[in-house]
Amino acid sequence: MSDAKPEIWFYHLERSTLDQVLPGLLEKTLQRGWRALVRGAAAHRLDDIDARLWTYRDESFLPHGRASDAHTGRQPILLSESGDNLNGAQALFIIDESDLGTVEAYERCFIIFDGRNEQALQHARERWRTLKAADANLAYWRQTDEGRWEKAA
Protein backbone atom coordinates (compact mmCIF):
# COMPACT_ATOMS: atom_id res chain seq x y z
CA MET A 1 0.00 0.00 0.00
CA SER A 2 1.13 3.53 -0.68
CA ASP A 3 1.45 6.33 1.88
CA ALA A 4 -1.78 7.88 0.58
CA LYS A 5 -4.81 8.06 2.83
CA PRO A 6 -7.36 5.36 2.17
CA GLU A 7 -10.53 6.33 0.36
CA ILE A 8 -13.56 6.22 2.64
CA TRP A 9 -16.76 5.83 0.66
CA PHE A 10 -20.19 6.26 2.23
CA TYR A 11 -22.95 4.21 0.55
CA HIS A 12 -26.41 5.56 1.33
CA LEU A 13 -29.01 2.81 0.95
CA GLU A 14 -32.37 4.27 -0.03
CA ARG A 15 -33.76 1.95 -2.71
CA SER A 16 -31.94 -1.30 -1.99
CA THR A 17 -31.09 -3.35 1.07
CA LEU A 18 -27.68 -4.38 2.32
CA ASP A 19 -28.40 -7.94 1.16
CA GLN A 20 -28.97 -6.63 -2.37
CA VAL A 21 -25.95 -4.29 -2.49
CA LEU A 22 -23.16 -6.00 -0.55
CA PRO A 23 -22.61 -9.03 -2.84
CA GLY A 24 -22.11 -6.80 -5.89
CA LEU A 25 -19.64 -4.56 -4.06
CA LEU A 26 -17.75 -7.62 -2.87
CA GLU A 27 -17.66 -9.04 -6.40
CA LYS A 28 -16.13 -5.81 -7.69
CA THR A 29 -13.60 -5.88 -4.87
CA LEU A 30 -12.48 -9.40 -5.78
CA GLN A 31 -12.32 -8.44 -9.47
CA ARG A 32 -9.77 -5.77 -8.51
CA GLY A 33 -7.64 -8.51 -6.98
CA TRP A 34 -8.35 -7.24 -3.47
CA ARG A 35 -9.41 -9.07 -0.35
CA ALA A 36 -12.29 -7.78 1.78
CA LEU A 37 -13.07 -7.59 5.46
CA VAL A 38 -16.75 -7.14 6.35
CA ARG A 39 -17.07 -5.81 9.89
CA GLY A 40 -20.44 -6.14 11.58
CA ALA A 41 -21.54 -5.27 15.09
CA ALA A 42 -23.51 -8.46 15.78
CA ALA A 43 -22.89 -12.15 15.17
CA HIS A 44 -26.49 -12.78 14.06
CA ARG A 45 -26.16 -10.12 11.36
CA LEU A 46 -22.95 -11.73 10.11
CA ASP A 47 -24.77 -15.10 10.13
CA ASP A 48 -27.33 -13.63 7.73
CA ILE A 49 -24.61 -12.23 5.46
CA ASP A 50 -22.74 -15.54 5.58
CA ALA A 51 -25.82 -17.39 4.34
CA ARG A 52 -26.54 -14.73 1.72
CA LEU A 53 -23.05 -14.89 0.19
CA TRP A 54 -23.46 -18.64 -0.40
CA THR A 55 -26.88 -18.30 -2.04
CA TYR A 56 -27.26 -14.83 -3.56
CA ARG A 57 -27.00 -16.29 -7.10
CA ASP A 58 -28.12 -19.66 -8.36
CA GLU A 59 -25.03 -20.13 -10.53
CA SER A 60 -22.32 -18.90 -8.15
CA PHE A 61 -21.30 -17.85 -4.65
CA LEU A 62 -18.76 -15.54 -3.10
CA PRO A 63 -15.92 -17.40 -1.35
CA HIS A 64 -15.69 -16.26 2.24
CA GLY A 65 -15.20 -17.29 5.82
CA ARG A 66 -15.73 -16.15 9.39
CA ALA A 67 -13.04 -14.71 11.63
CA SER A 68 -13.84 -17.47 14.12
CA ASP A 69 -13.01 -20.19 11.54
CA ALA A 70 -9.63 -21.72 10.79
CA HIS A 71 -7.44 -20.42 7.94
CA THR A 72 -8.66 -16.82 8.10
CA GLY A 73 -5.59 -15.65 6.20
CA ARG A 74 -6.69 -17.59 3.13
CA GLN A 75 -10.14 -16.07 2.88
CA PRO A 76 -10.74 -13.57 0.06
CA ILE A 77 -13.70 -12.24 2.07
CA LEU A 78 -13.73 -12.39 5.85
CA LEU A 79 -16.72 -11.65 8.08
CA SER A 80 -15.78 -10.36 11.51
CA GLU A 81 -16.97 -8.49 14.58
CA SER A 82 -13.43 -7.38 15.43
CA GLY A 83 -11.11 -4.81 13.95
CA ASP A 84 -8.37 -7.31 13.14
CA ASN A 85 -7.41 -7.54 9.46
CA LEU A 86 -6.77 -11.29 9.61
CA ASN A 87 -6.92 -11.84 5.85
CA GLY A 88 -4.76 -8.89 4.76
CA ALA A 89 -7.76 -7.15 3.17
CA GLN A 90 -7.37 -4.03 1.05
CA ALA A 91 -11.09 -3.20 1.36
CA LEU A 92 -12.99 -2.74 4.62
CA PHE A 93 -16.78 -2.85 4.67
CA ILE A 94 -18.48 -1.32 7.71
CA ILE A 95 -22.09 -2.30 8.31
CA ASP A 96 -24.62 -1.66 11.07
CA GLU A 97 -22.74 1.27 12.61
CA SER A 98 -19.70 -0.89 13.45
CA ASP A 99 -16.55 0.86 14.58
CA LEU A 100 -14.40 2.07 11.74
CA GLY A 101 -11.21 1.66 13.76
CA THR A 102 -7.81 2.17 12.19
CA VAL A 103 -8.01 2.44 8.40
CA GLU A 104 -4.39 2.95 7.35
CA ALA A 105 -3.97 -0.70 6.30
CA TYR A 106 -6.73 -0.43 3.68
CA GLU A 107 -6.95 1.04 0.20
CA ARG A 108 -10.66 1.71 0.51
CA CYS A 109 -13.27 1.63 3.25
CA PHE A 110 -16.99 1.34 2.56
CA ILE A 111 -19.41 2.62 5.16
CA ILE A 112 -22.81 1.26 4.19
CA PHE A 113 -25.84 2.66 5.97
CA ASP A 114 -29.61 2.45 5.65
CA GLY A 115 -30.98 5.90 4.89
CA ARG A 116 -34.49 4.74 5.81
CA ASN A 117 -33.36 4.21 9.42
CA GLU A 118 -33.13 7.54 11.26
CA GLN A 119 -30.58 6.29 13.83
CA ALA A 120 -28.32 4.88 11.09
CA LEU A 121 -28.65 8.09 9.10
CA GLN A 122 -27.72 10.28 12.07
CA HIS A 123 -24.78 8.01 12.91
CA ALA A 124 -23.51 8.24 9.33
CA ARG A 125 -23.83 12.03 9.33
CA GLU A 126 -21.86 12.31 12.56
CA ARG A 127 -19.23 9.90 11.24
CA TRP A 128 -18.93 12.00 8.05
CA ARG A 129 -18.45 15.21 10.07
CA THR A 130 -15.81 13.60 12.28
CA LEU A 131 -13.88 12.17 9.31
CA LYS A 132 -14.19 15.41 7.34
CA ALA A 133 -12.72 17.32 10.29
CA ALA A 134 -9.83 14.83 10.32
CA ASP A 135 -9.22 15.59 6.61
CA ALA A 136 -10.08 12.04 5.49
CA ASN A 137 -10.37 11.22 1.78
CA LEU A 138 -14.19 10.96 1.60
CA ALA A 139 -16.78 10.23 -1.07
CA TYR A 140 -20.54 9.92 -0.81
CA TRP A 141 -22.49 7.59 -3.12
CA ARG A 142 -26.23 7.37 -3.55
CA GLN A 143 -28.52 5.42 -5.84
CA THR A 144 -30.28 6.95 -8.81
CA ASP A 145 -33.93 6.22 -9.52
CA GLU A 146 -32.70 3.50 -11.89
CA GLY A 147 -30.72 1.85 -9.10
CA ARG A 148 -27.23 2.81 -10.35
CA TRP A 149 -24.71 4.34 -7.97
CA GLU A 150 -23.55 7.90 -8.54
CA LYS A 151 -20.99 9.91 -6.65
CA ALA A 152 -22.80 12.82 -5.00
CA ALA A 153 -19.96 14.30 -2.90
Score class of each variant (00 low, 15 high):
residue 49 I to T: 05
residue 49 I to V: 12
residue 50 D to E: 13
residue 50 D to C: 04
residue 51 A to N: 14
residue 51 A to Q: 15
residue 51 A to W: 09
residue 52 R to A: 08
residue 52 R to N: 09
residue 52 R to V: 04
residue 54 W to P: 00
residue 54 W to K: 01
residue 54 W to Y: 04
residue 54 W to Q: 00
residue 56 Y to G: 14
residue 58 D to T: 11
residue 60 S to L: 09
residue 60 S to N: 08
residue 61 F to T: 09
residue 62 L to S: 02
residue 63 P to H: 07
residue 63 P to W: 06
residue 64 H to V: 02
residue 64 H to E: 06
residue 65 G to C: 04
residue 65 G to Y: 06
residue 66 R to Q: 06
residue 66 R to C: 09
residue 67 A to M: 00
residue 67 A to H: 04
residue 67 A to P: 03
residue 67 A to F: 00
residue 68 S to A: 12
residue 68 S to V: 02
residue 69 D to E: 12
residue 70 A to F: 07
residue 72 T to R: 05
residue 72 T to H: 06
residue 72 T to K: 08
residue 74 R to W: 15
residue 74 R to I: 11
residue 76 P to Q: 02
residue 76 P to N: 07
residue 77 I to K: 14
residue 78 L to H: 05
residue 78 L to T: 15
residue 78 L to C: 13
residue 78 L to I: 15
residue 79 L to N: 03
residue 80 S to A: 13
residue 81 E to M: 14
residue 82 S to Q: 13
residue 82 S to A: 13
residue 83 G to L: 15
residue 83 G to F: 15
residue 83 G to A: 14
residue 84 D to P: 05
residue 84 D to R: 10
residue 85 N to L: 12
residue 86 L to S: 15
residue 86 L to I: 14
residue 86 L to P: 14
residue 87 N to Q: 08
residue 88 G to I: 01
residue 88 G to M: 04
residue 89 A to N: 02
residue 89 A to D: 06
residue 90 Q to Y: 02
residue 92 L to V: 04
residue 92 L to M: 11
residue 93 F to T: 03
residue 94 I to Y: 02
residue 96 D to C: 01
residue 96 D to W: 08
residue 97 E to P: 07
residue 97 E to T: 11
residue 97 E to F: 00
residue 98 S to V: 08
residue 98 S to R: 05
residue 99 D to L: 15
residue 99 D to F: 11
residue 100 L to H: 05
residue 101 G to Y: 13
residue 103 V to T: 10
residue 103 V to K: 05
residue 105 A to H: 04
residue 105 A to R: 00
residue 105 A to T: 08
residue 106 Y to P: 10
residue 106 Y to D: 06
residue 107 E to T: 12
residue 107 E to Q: 13
residue 107 E to G: 10
residue 108 R to G: 00
residue 110 F to M: 10
residue 111 I to G: 12
residue 111 I to A: 12
residue 113 F to H: 11
residue 113 F to T: 09
residue 113 F to D: 02
residue 114 D to Y: 02
residue 115 G to I: 14
